[in-house]
Nucleic acid binder design. Structure first.
Lengths: 194, 194
DNA sequence: AAAAATATCTTTACATTGTTAAGATTTTAT
DNA sequence: ATAAAATCTTAACAATGTAAAGATATTTTT
């Protein structure tokens, strides 16, 4: 490791993390490529050695955040004793919402480009499917099947559940939302109320 | 009405409508103040006689879209024979989702600035509350009360229902979402599955 | 009706931004 | 060691939001 280095060494990852840092500081709307480069101590054009465009960097940052998101969801799954109990789906839902409540800037960022692949159907190819939804689907199908639901009902239930949880995350992370109760303790009631 | 006019005559409204036109054409992310001005045939700085900033124009455009949105919701209410039947809430939900399915560019635009006022509580001041939610709340409370639900349950149910519908709108308007069924006919099943 | 005040618009200018091009420096491959 | 490739810098461009100064039209006042 040299002190003054022409080459940064790990610029690609540094740009991703610096970008996420800036998003947490002042939101995705105020992020600029040049600020990210400056935060990494490189010139304005340096990012173009690692990303084709600003959107390309944003995509990589999104992947990075979604990886954290997936880790949180999987952690909540492993916290469940019974892998075939419907409660597992509730726990996933709670984690889904809480992830964005704990990182409010992430919601508008992750879903700003509304162009992620989403396959709602139970059939079809799940490669490239929005990973959090794919994970939820994968866990939900056997659990709901065991309850004796028809395939069509299962598909509807999965879409409905995801919509509820996703909508809750959207609402809870709005800047001027007023809610006197504590989300963490209240959220299960709200999901169950379905 | 003069042919060549230094003064536009109705520039404020024209800017709002031109802006919405551009959003429908190429999405909110690609909208610029200068393009809006050009579409109205005025100079780049002309909008500043009517709006303090680009965000100020965007706010006015949002209000304009929300007015249309409210009109659609109220129309669906008036289409219901029984004003105290829970089916009315389903109809509102369908209209909520369908409004954004019919105008896919509106969803990311209306909710991009996640800073609208939202009061989730049944108590408290509803002035300034996000009008579509306020309307839903207003209609839901008496209907759910009649079903014998407690106040707390009602609040939970309203939040849950709005989250579901709002989440459905978010998901259905994603660009790369694959769904082989027809939303219009399927959406009620999905909402009911709650 | 004339003059003054105001509203609406234009032109010019500037800073910020994404992006490209040309070239410098370092690392890697031969 | 030399060539090739990767990584970075500086300089420049077009698009954008916005401010300032001034022109033109409209409204208000007298």
């Amino acid at each position: 490791m040299k002190n003054k280095k022409y080459h940064h060494g790990d610029l690609r990852n540094s740009l991703i993390e610096a970008g996420i840092e800036l998003i947490n500081r002042e939101g995705a709307s105020k992020l600029s490529l040049r600020k990210v480069a400056a935060l990494c101590g490189v010139s304005q054009a340096a990012p173009y050695s690692h990303f084709q465009s600003k959107d390309d960097l944003l995509d990589a940052m999104r992947d990075y955040v979604i990886e954290q998101f997936i880790a949180v969801l999987e952690n909540s799954i492993q916290g469940c004793k019974e892998q075939d109990n419907p409660q597992l789906l509730i726990e996933m839902g709670k984690s889904y919402v809480m992830f964005f409540i704990k990182n409010p800037q992430y919601y508008p960022f992750v879903f700003s480009q509304q162009c992620m692949e989403v396959n709602l159907s139970l059939d079809g190819d799940d490669t490239g499917n929005f990973p959090p939804f794919q994970l939820f689907k994968m866990k939900a199908v056997p659990i709901l099947s065991k309850l004796g639901m028809s395939k069509e009902k299962i598909e509807d239930a999965i879409i409905s559940s995801w919509a509820t949880v996703h909508g809750l995350a959207s609402i809870a992370t709005m800047k001027n939302v007023h809610y006197d109760k504590d989300w963490e303790t209240k959220i299960e009631d709200i999901i169950r109320n379905k």
